[in-house]
């Protein structure tokens, strides 16, 4: 399945591009995606799937999912 990935802030360092598409096996989870991207920060991280925050890294992804990976942030 195809996953659309978008990296923000400090997560940008894990890929050449901020926005790209990835081919993952059916049933792949958030953990699989983070492993694939070699993302080391597994605690201070927020993953949004189709605009919804995912709390469980075992959550399976579905084809065409828009996945935003970021560190928590703040601002005004």
């Amino acid at each position: 399945m195809k996953i659309n990935v978008c990296l923000f802030g400090p997560m940008k360092k894990y890929a050449d591009k901020d926005k790209f598409q990835l081919e993952l096996e059916e049933g792949a989870t958030i953990t699989d995606l983070l492993d694939r991207l070699k993302i080391e920060d597994r605690i201070y991280i927020v993953v949004l799937i189709n605009g919804r925050r995912a709390y469980d890294e075992d959550e399976p992804l579905s084809d065409g999912a828009e996945v935003l990976i970021m560190a928590p942030t703040g601002g005004g």
Binding site: F8, R53, G75
Partner: peptide
């Protein structure tokens, strides 16, 4: 006064 976190910081809520 800018509202929300601004460009480049995905600002989500539920």
């Amino acid at each position: 006064q800018g509202c929300g976190l601004g460009k480049g910081l995905p600002d989500y809520g539920a």
